[in-house]
Design a protein around this nucleic acid. Structure first.
Lengths: 124, 124
DNA sequence: TTTGTATTTAAGTATTTGCTTAAATAAGTA
DNA sequence: TACTTATTTAAGCAAATACTTAAATACAAA
């Protein structure tokens, strides 16, 4: 980084205040950014939505529903699990994934938007 | 894609129902996914938060606040603008960016979470 | 113990992302 | 007009992403 703000009109008080706000919330930006980047993938967003709707699903089912390979699904599930967004329950050789409560506060509004937009297009 | 679900235990009614839900909401997944992928970048999340707090900011200010080069900031702003999340206002040679109303319904909860978590750590 | 099913992991690859530096626009000022 | 400032755009590149196929792991059943 070479450039910095040159212009005389710059409000240094405002800039300093903004820098402090960022610093005070740095942990939030990191954490929320990670969750949003996980949800910001169309496949993973679908997986999360399906888990909300169906309570739990296995990689095999998801592969079938999403029409994509099992390893591809498995790798998405791994990311979601690493991000503490979903959890696994083993039953025989089947592994059932479900949403964790921890981040539902952030995710629920998304599911709501998805369902609302659908009902909106239905009524129009 | 070669594999598909083999197991006999698969609930075909459930799978078919899920496929239909995805199809019915396909537009929502695409649109929401795009917004979340934009917000799911730490730099862009900070930019959005700052625009909410300060109403409007120019690339020069943002570069200074974020501690990164002007072209880097400009390219993030372009993505946000292409996604209809922010809009530009020209004043002389300065361009002020601000949040558009359209997607604030989705973004507002994020800002709320950021501010809440900060006040939470302050009190602890 | 061998076979089959469910899943993960690893390695390879094409695409996307996010920066860098340099050049191009655009608008004010001398 | 030339010069500065604010910003964008373009080209290049390293790293991350999301898939692929093949191999490994885990469990159940024959």
């Amino acid at each position: 980084m070479i450039n910095t703000c040159i212009r005389l009109q710059a409000d240094m008080v405002q800039i300093k205040s903004c820098r402090e706000k960022l610093k005070a919330n740095s942990k939030s930006f990191l954490q929320l950014g990670q969750i949003l980047s996980l949800a910001g993938n169309e496949v993973r967003l679908k997986i999360l939505f399906l888990l909300e709707e169906e309570t739990e699903l296995c990689p095999c089912d998801l592969s079938d529903i999403l029409g994509m390979s099992i390893p591809a699904v498995s790798q998405h599930l791994r990311k979601l699990k690493d991000g503490d967004i979903i959890e696994a329950r083993k039953e025989g050789q089947t592994i059932f994934y479900s949403l964790r409560n921890q981040h539902l506060k952030i995710l629920r509004p998304f599911f709501k938007i998805i369902n609302q937009q659908n009902s909106a297009t239905q009524t129009v």
